[in-house]
């Protein structure tokens, strides 16, 4: 069953799994194997970024966190332009190189608290918690520019240039959305970036028309005060 799943990379470091000798493993060793399998199941084998499964969990959590904390978050969807052409023209190895380049740029440009994911094919996503609207655009533009400025060097000396289209939506506490709606909004912005000519960033306009006070804000406001008045 595990062998059929095809996680060859991960299984190589677990000879017990490959040889089918799990019965002889200690509890700690089994736990380590389980941890490793979980890890494999949540990461993309090529780029090492988290995969769609992890991304959906993280996005759901972030939507809840925004509503509770009152802090605005940003979701970016990044799409490699003309990925099929790259694959068809230069072959799949160069296609993989292109995906690794985008993953590298994303990893370099996000904070430790952010989540960069490969959502399948040539689609990537980044969740940026507590991200001010003006900073969000800066980060998105930086990602776009760095991919554009990082061509793949072919063995024959040619360079393959790539561009990305980026769509983004702010996750705001003023409107409670489920994560599918957030994803849909970001998708619409991505579509806009593509249809307006690619190699560009399209973010929704964040207008703070309402400023609800979250539970976290209230408790931080009032808890110390309550302790104080008991003194």
């Amino acid at each position: 069953m595990l062998r059929q799943a095809g996680y060859a990379d991960g299984l190589q470091v677990m000879p017990e799994v490959q040889s089918g000798s799990l019965q002889s493993c200690s509890c700690e060793a089994l736990q380590a194997i389980i941890d490793r399998l979980c890890d494999i199941s949540l990461h993309d084998a090529l780029t090492g970024l988290v995969n769609t499964r992890y991304f959906k969990l993280a996005l759901g959590r972030e939507v809840d966190r925004v509503f509770r904390s009152g802090e605005i978050a940003l979701l970016l969807l990044i799409d490699l332009d003309s990925f099929k052409e790259i694959n068809d023209t230069y072959g799949h190895l160069v296609g993989d190189q292109a995906l690794l380049t985008v993953a590298g740029v994303l990893t370099k440009n996000v904070r430790p608290m952010d989540t960069a994911a490969r959502c399948g094919g040539d689609e990537f996503a980044v969740i940026l918690p507590n991200c001010r609207p003006d900073t969000g655009r800066l980060i998105a533009e930086r990602i776009r520019m760095q991919v554009e400025q990082t061509p793949i060097a072919l063995t024959d000396g040619r360079n393959v240039r790539m561009t990305t289209s980026i769509g983004g939506t702010h996750i705001s506490p003023s409107r409670k959305l489920v994560f599918e709606e957030v994803l849909d909004q970001a998708d619409q912005q991505l579509y806009r970036a593509k249809s307006e000519g690619r190699n560009r960033v399209s973010l929704d306009v964040q207008a703070p028309v309402a400023a609800p006070v979250s539970f976290d804000e209230k408790s931080q406001l009032l808890d110390p005060f309550g302790r104080d008045s008991d003194e």
């Binding site: 904390s69 802090e71 003006d134 931080q220 406001l221 005060f225």
Partner: peptide, 20 residues
């Protein structure tokens, strides 16, 4: 003064992170 400082702390954390 203490109440004002406390309000300022919460403002710094939740409001000033959203304003220019």
């Amino acid at each position: 003064r203490k109440l004002t400082e406390q309000l300022q702390q919460v403002v710094d954390r939740f409001v000033n992170t959203q304003t220019a």
